[in-house]
Design a protein around this nucleic acid. Sequence first.
DNA 1: TGACGTCGTGCAATCGATTGCACATACTTT
DNA 2: AAAGTATGTGCAATCGATTGCACGACGTCA
Lengths: 341, 341
Amino acid sequence: MNEMTRQPATLQAVADAAGVHRSTASRALNPDKAHLIGPDVVERVQAAARRIGYQRDELAAGLRTKRSRLIGIVVPDLANLVFAPIVSAIETVLAANGYSALIANAGGGVARQIQIIDQLIAHRVEGVILATAQRDDPVVTRCAEAGVPAVLVNRAEEKARVSTVISNDICGMRLAVEHLVALGHRRIGHIGGPSHLSTGALRLEGFGKAMAEAGLDADAVVTAEAYTRDAGRAAAIELLDRHDLTAVATANDLLALGLYQELRARGLRCPDDISVVGHNDMPMIDMVDPPLTTVHIHQADMGRQAAELLLARIGKPETDTVTRVIDSELVVRGSTAPPRG
Amino acid sequence: MNEMTRQPATLQAVADAAGVHRSTASRALNPDKAHLIGPDVVERVQAAARRIGYQRDELAAGLRTKRSRLIGIVVPDLANLVFAPIVSAIETVLAANGYSALIANAGGGVARQIQIIDQLIAHRVEGVILATAQRDDPVVTRCAEAGVPAVLVNRAEEKARVSTVISNDICGMRLAVEHLVALGHRRIGHIGGPSHLSTGALRLEGFGKAMAEAGLDADAVVTAEAYTRDAGRAAAIELLDRHDLTAVATANDLLALGLYQELRARGLRCPDDISVVGHNDMPMIDMVDPPLTTVHIHQADMGRQAAELLLARIGKPETDTVTRVIDSELVVRGSTAPPRG
DNA sequence: TGACGTCGTGCAATCGATTGCACATACTTT
DNA sequence: AAAGTATGTGCAATCGATTGCACGACGTCA
């Protein structure tokens, strides 16, 4: 019950307390090497370690072993609800495997992102998970240069240079359109996400394909500047000014909320006047008014798989890069109904 | 343009490239010590560093300097929307000061939390920010033992051992009650948070005081097991079964949502039959049906201040512990109205 | 009894950067 | 011109843990 509060106990202190050399103590404390040491000594060292409250210094150990047990996670914005479940799931998997998560907001532009990734590299992260990927992402390039394994989640690059876990964006948007068509809608518009993001591009593609299959025109399309309510509303204004629609499929729930606001401002009612379908099924979106019909993506599952992919890669660097596409599902709530008349 | 991808450049390599000793290179690259070195040499070293793509190894540097430039953040659940803005703000401040955030989910019990904090300590975090504090928290004790500066955010301990940033829980709840009283409500109930959390205890206290000041009985009180929708609904069932109320003030928005569900199940309408006030004003809560009247707490501000407090403490360890109480504000939306009849 | 394994432990180098100290050079000062 | 003072660099120890190698002790077998 010593007062070990001032100077954290070092391995040398344990060794002294147990009357052995510090290398012996090191081995005794390492499950993988403990068999090299006599059982009685192992016991003695472990007892000493417990007694003086020894805690291994990951920093020092990492210097020698080149293993920081740190994984970097980069998200566009932690406060964005879409990413919370993904990050949470990633962290859980990492923790279960003895890794800690170094999480960074990458709000700003690409320059800032590079800066962030360099910061992570400086901490010798063993790998990174990026939720920020653009269709051609300089950050991925930077990771490759630095030899840091990277995995993409939620957003993909145009050509898959690294392992990636995304939802089936094309298929998801198809579900949305098919649902609207089945309800009897013909004049269907689309509020798309930024085109430099895979989600924006692929969901737009899915929209086009599904509309064509239904024999409908897909010309009522406006692209939002960002995945925000405000950008959604701005896009909605443009879309509604230019087209006479009975339904809109949006690339993202926040965009749908922006559309909600504009509908309300125009005195239009959802779903009576216009049906709306979102995308992502972010937390709480089931509580909005009206409850949003949306495409549910398995965020926790994506996060988990991304983490597992990265850990596998770290364990076996020559592993092939794979792209996992997670199917999404339509969740019908109150924002869609047959068109009037 | 060398292929530096395999072995990351070391300081020694920079020194060699610049034709100086590595200690000189170290100083030339450190803004605080660069003045010790000749301007021309500094220039030469920096050029060399740039040329071979040198990146300082925080791990190795930290070993010597005892500065990891890492801050631990512990939250109950990253996927919980209440914490997202707080964590996001913390991370932003840390990044601006050259620190990185090591974030951990502390879902499980106290044992798991201790394990997590030990993991953080093993990474030699220079400080931790805890959003998990119980009224008497063993994790805080553990930090004190290990000599790691800690700051509490959102939830406080009963006796302030470390600096803390919380919202004015008592006052916030008073605002809620006063609002309901002003509308004409007399029979007002309360769904409280877990009593081992400061938010639960203080908001309950605020409820009692405000009711007393209004000359009303504060006996319609039920405590929820946790801050979740399900626990809120369970508490709502008990509360509604036992009391005939016209309004309920809840300790948390999620609890209010649970109450919403139960009201709907019973065919009661909000605010026509029962008014509801939430607490926290979490993201998106303005979009629920009906839009929730709630007490807005300045989450980003709290996160920012917590981070600043911690950084100040790290810079100057003898700093006094302070408790910052951030005033909250009532946001009136659609879930409150005068009682009928 | 001597050669040879095996097993357990200690020694010392190593990871990469930082820093107190010593030393050499140049520049004042009297 | 000698002594004294900046000024700029190099040397080597240091942070804490890991690990290849060597060495001593013990046991076995011939």
